[in-house]
């Protein structure tokens, strides 16, 4: 597995975990009849903070922990992970970004339609955040799939 594949895998796992947490919390808020402005905004802030923390932890993992593990496995104390990003990586990244934009555009459209149909702005923004995370997941999945195919 290359450095870029590790990055994508860690990003995918982080965003799946954050999306699951987000969905569970939204479900709880709806079940408790507490889908209010205050609680939903608090949830958005928590999710945004989690995304930032997850990105930092993922970066530390792929740069340090994974290198240390591979160094031990190879038995070479001077082992250095290959962080080269070449034209194939850039092409695959572009394909992933394209999927991310498509899903997020679709999400924005769905969110606006729900608002146009008379739902509260809270529903619209919750959907926007949900589709934002789904877009990231879809992009990472596309990248990982492309690494297997190309």
């Amino acid at each position: 597995m290359t450095f870029q594949q590790k990055n994508n895998t860690v990003s995918l796992v982080s965003f799946v975990a954050i999306t699951a947490f987000f969905l569970v919390r939204v479900g709880q808020l709806i079940a408790d009849d507490n889908f209010s402005h205050q609680s939903v905004v608090r949830l958005w802030i928590v999710v945004a903070l989690l995304a930032v923390i997850a990105t930092i932890v993922a970066m530390i993992f792929t740069h340090s922990v994974a290198t240390a593990i591979e160094s031990v496995q190879s038995g070479d104390p001077d082992f250095e992970i290959d962080k080269t990003v070449d034209e194939r990586d850039r092409r695959i990244d572009l394909e992933g970004t394209s999927v991310t934009y498509t899903v997020s555009s679709l999400g924005a459209f769905v969110a606006m339609v729900t608002y146009a149909l008379g739902n509260s702005p809270l529903v619209m923004f919750t959907l926007l955040i949900f589709f934002g995370m789904m877009a990231q997941i879809a992009g990472d999945l596309k990248r990982l799939w492309s690494y297997r195919e190309v």
Binding site: T84, D86, E87, R88, D89, E149, V150
Partner: peptide, 26 residues
């Protein structure tokens, strides 16, 4: 070969398998 042309070993593997077509520069 990967190091000499500045790409990853995976790119060379993909090229040899015919899964990836290189840029003109590569």
């Amino acid at each position: 070969l990967a190091q000499r042309v500045g790409v990853t070993r995976q790119t060379i593997i993909s090229l040899e398998k015919g899964k990836y077509s290189p840029s003109l520069e590569l």
